[in-house]
Amino acid sequence: MTITVPRNATATPIAEVLENRWSPRGFDATHEVSEEQINALMEAARWSPSAFNKQPWGFIVGRRGSENFSKIFESLAEFNQLWNANVSALVVALARTEIDGEPVVNAHYDLGQAVAHLSIQAETLGLQVHQMTGFDVNKIAEQFVLPAGYAPYTVISVGQHADNESVPEKIRERDASPRVRNDLDQVLLSFE
């Protein structure tokens, strides 16, 4: 099930880091993500664009074996727990939807940009990430003391891809299947 580079069949040439980015579910259970790597992911997210420079995001990180990891893992849907047992770290991405009592209408958009920057930084470090919404928001809120205005939005798996026997066959098959995207003419609604 070896993946050839580039990973994605793009319609036109794009930056290699984007061409190879993907979201596997098969992760190497022996890989450990370093504090420096996590800091680089957070720094990439920190420097992403933000409307009015509000930076309406926050992150909770748990490396495998830590209490934070266990708390985040317990919030995952059953299927997500199956393949996340091997990941090196779990990250909760939170949108700051309110600042000083005022709604931040672009919070989710800005958080998405921060996570996109994080995912590209991961790729440059030889890591892969997989974002998921299959988790219990209330469990996260119960497990962690969240600052006012912050809401959990997604959980991100971080690690290195593996396709060996430690990964369930169903997951290996899913990871090896061809990736599909809408054609460019389906997403480019108008162009002159």
Rank of each mutant, 00 (worst) to 15 (best):
Q81I: 09
N68G: 10
V137D: 15
P24W: 11
Q113M: 11
A85E: 12
M1S: 13
E142F: 06
E78Y: 10
S177L: 11
Q186P: 02
G134L: 09
V158W: 06
D163V: 07
G58H: 15
M42Q: 11
P6N: 04
F27L: 03
D175K: 02
N8D: 04
R7A: 10
P152C: 09
V167Y: 00
F27H: 01
E67G: 13
G126D: 03
S190F: 15
W83G: 00
R46T: 03
E74Q: 15
V5W: 10
E165S: 13
F191N: 08
S177H: 13
V145M: 10
L127N: 00
V158E: 01
A44Y: 02
S66L: 09
E169D: 09
S88T: 05
G101F: 04
D183Q: 09
I60W: 03
S88P: 00
A122H: 01
E173W: 06
Q113K: 06
R181M: 09
E36R: 14
E169W: 08
I120K: 04
S177Q: 12
V104L: 04
V137F: 14
R25A: 05
G65T: 12
Q55K: 15
F27P: 00
H117K: 05
P152D: 06
L118K: 06
M42G: 05
V167M: 00
H161I: 09
S23F: 01
N182G: 07
Q131I: 05
I14H: 01
D110G: 07
T12K: 11
G159H: 01
A11Y: 14
E67W: 15
D28F: 04
A95R: 11
E169L: 15
Q186T: 10
F135A: 00
K139F: 04
R64Q: 14
V129L: 10
S166H: 08
E192P: 09
I99Q: 15
R172C: 01
R96G: 03
K170F: 12
A45I: 07
R172G: 01
V91D: 00
P13Q: 09
R179W: 05
V105D: 13
P103E: 10
E19T: 10
A114S: 05
R181C: 06
D185L: 12
P103F: 11
A29L: 14
A15C: 03
A89S: 01
T12I: 13
Y153C: 07
N53C: 02
A176I: 14
E173M: 13
E74R: 12
S157I: 04
S23E: 06
H130M: 10
V167T: 02
A93E: 09
I140F: 05
I72G: 02
A151D: 09
L125P: 02
A116H: 13
A116K: 07
T12F: 15
Q160G: 03
E173G: 07
S66Q: 07
S177I: 04
E16Q: 11
